[in-house]
Design a protein around this nucleic acid. Structure first.
Lengths: 130, 130
DNA sequence: AAATCAATTGCAACATTGTTGCGTTAATTT
DNA sequence: AAATTAACGCAACAATGTTGCAATTGATTT
């Protein structure tokens, strides 16, 4: 079977996530890593982290893709059904762990996953900007 | 001021939308158009149609972008706050006009737009596949 | 500690998707 | 029919993501 290894690049990526309170794009991670490893390696590390359920992938409204570390230390099984907030001003994406939408589906659909993204102004920009 | 023109390419794109019951990607539209116009032209037409509120743009979970014609003939003001369903099997995206999530936001956020995408199996694949 | 094995990496090359500038074409107005 | 300018085609570019392969390195075994 495949075992996963703790490489320096992987550790560096995880450290970047720990330092950040918001979700990060591949490019943002690359800039913070400052040539620790190749561009391609970051893509592969992110793929692995997503598969291992350590990081989750967020597709934003504007087509950008970001990644955030999951905080599900206490949960056995982890479902990414929380909401994300995307700020139109500073473009930061934050997880709204507490926001879980309720909805009623038509019959004959089997829902496996939901993605709920809200956009607008985050508290920081709402206060400073107006 | 800028006026919008009814060109053959634009008409052709709108016809493709009318023929389709699901949301379409740029590539899908291009294939159906069969060299009616250039690739770039399709991008520009789609941009315009989105601006004119005739078509809405859907960013999918997997990062793909699709477009669908709005049906809001009867409404004065149109808000795209309905849900979309993305089938994991056939990859079709359909608008779930009736599904509107309810949710409670933390304070200090100003929500301007929401994107609610569900994925799983659509009725067609749910019946035929299993 | 050295050998082994496979997971991981770097590099180069490629694919896809979307954008921009500019000269030309054609839809609409007069 | 002529004038105006929105829309177009083309070429070139940019961003993002993928793939193949040889070299490297982390973990395990001897």
């Amino acid at each position: 079977m495949k075992t996963t290894r703790n490489t320096t690049a992987r550790t560096a990526v995880l450290e970047v996530f720990d330092k950040s309170k918001t979700a990060l794009s591949h490019t943002e991670i690359q800039k913070q890593l400052n040539d620790v490893c190749d561009r391609v390696t970051i893509y592969r590390i992110l793929d692995r982290l997503v598969n291992e359920d350590i990081v989750h992938k967020i597709s934003n409204l504007d087509g950008t893709v970001k990644y955030a570390k999951c905080n599900h230390s206490h949960q056995r099984v982890h479902i990414h059904n929380h909401a994300h907030f995307s700020c139109e001003n500073c473009h930061e994406i934050t997880c709204l762990e507490s926001v879980k939408p309720s909805y009623i589906m038509p019959h004959n659909y089997k829902v496996n996953e939901i993605n709920f993204t809200l956009s607008g102004l985050c508290p920081k920009c709402l206060n400073s900007n107006i």
